[in-house]
């Protein structure tokens, strides 16, 4: 494939990510911000896929879009609709500016000094699915962290069931109430 299409794709994804992230930061409506985050996550997933990290890219969608964003919106929905009359003002503007300046002063030199591993396409290994090598690493070198993480998630799952059960036991007679 020529060099044109890959770089076009890269800049398209980068544009989507940066544009939607900026919209998330500057939007005055919290729901618009949350939905804009969807495009940021999706653009990031596309970028991962484009870089050959297929499993990481899809995990990004499953976890962030399917889990975290849905949960976030679920929470936002309880806040009620913002109308035109809702007061929207900027707070801590100058403090924020100072914080950005401080962070920027730290990050820009680091970015400039970083030894970027720039390689031409010919130097790179041939693209293949990463999932089997990730699986091998998880089952050998990183078995303990992997097992601890899965145990933690299993505990959270069982905990959710226990909380849901507990309500039905204490409020006998009433219709059991469960939430996600």
């Amino acid at each position: 494939m020529d060099a044109l299409l890959p770089s076009l794709l890269f800049y398209a994804f980068a544009g989507v990510i940066l544009g939607s992230a900026a919209f998330t930061a500057f939007a005055r409506d919290i729901v618009h911000a949350a939905f804009s985050l969807l495009f940021t996550f999706f653009g990031l997933a596309c970028l991962y896929l484009y870089l050959g990290a297929d499993f990481v890219g899809l995990s990004q969608v499953v976890i962030y879009v399917g889990g975290i964003l849905v949960l976030l919106l679920f929470g936002v929905m309880f806040t009620g609709h913002q109308t035109q009359e809702t007061e929207k003002r900027t707070v801590n503007f100058y403090w924020g500016l100072a914080l950005i300046a401080l962070l920027g002063a730290g990050m820009v030199p680091a970015l400039l000094k970083a030894p970027w591993a720039v390689k031409s396409a010919a130097e790179l290994p041939e693209a293949k699915s990463t999932i089997s090598s990730i699986a091998t690493l998880l089952m050998t070198d990183y078995l303990l962290p992997f097992e601890i993480a899965s145990l933690l998630l299993l505990m959270a799952l069982i905990g959710a069931v226990v909380i849901a059960r507990g309500e039905t036991k204490t409020d006998e007679g009433e219709s059991p109430e469960t939430s996600a």
Partner: peptide
């Protein structure tokens, strides 16, 4: 796709959103 099933699970979340 090599990880077609994961892809399908991932895309279904868009519908819910």
């Amino acid at each position: 796709l090599n990880i077609g099933v994961v892809y399908l699970l991932a895309t279904s979340s868009l519908v819910a959103l």
